[in-house]
């Protein structure tokens, strides 16, 4: 007999689409364990042929940056336009990048 809980844990769901893209976060759902989370994700998020691979991560395992840290974390890069590779002339022959 396993320990009794009131609610199943929350899982974040990542799905890779048909065309070799990376896995993308598509939403979250509840499930008792990781295998069931994959089955639930298959039923909730791939009904319309959206994916070929599913990752599930228990939401509490994700460490997120804090919104209050946004100044020190992100603002310093705002003034550094030279980090964008927009100062090169790209030859026409290269085509779309």
């Amino acid at each position: 007999m396993t320990q009794q809980r009131n609610e199943w844990p929350l899982w974040e769901i990542f799905i890779r689409g048909q065309h070799g893209m990376s896995h993308r976060h598509v939403g979250s759902l509840h499930a008792a364990d990781s295998e069931t989370a994959i089955l639930n994700a298959r039923d909730v998020y791939t009904r319309r042929n959206e994916g070929v691979s599913i990752w599930v991560v228990q939401a509490q395992q994700i460490t997120a940056s804090s919104p209050s840290d946004k100044g020190p974390l992100y603002e310093p890069s705002e003034a550094k336009v030279y980090r964008h590779p927009s100062f090169f002339d790209i030859p026409k022959e290269v085509g779309a990048m």
Partner: peptide
């Protein structure tokens, strides 16, 4: 009983 099962059963 839960949303996830509802969708799975409907499928």
């Amino acid at each position: 009983p839960v949303l996830e099962e509802d969708i799975a059963l409907a499928n």
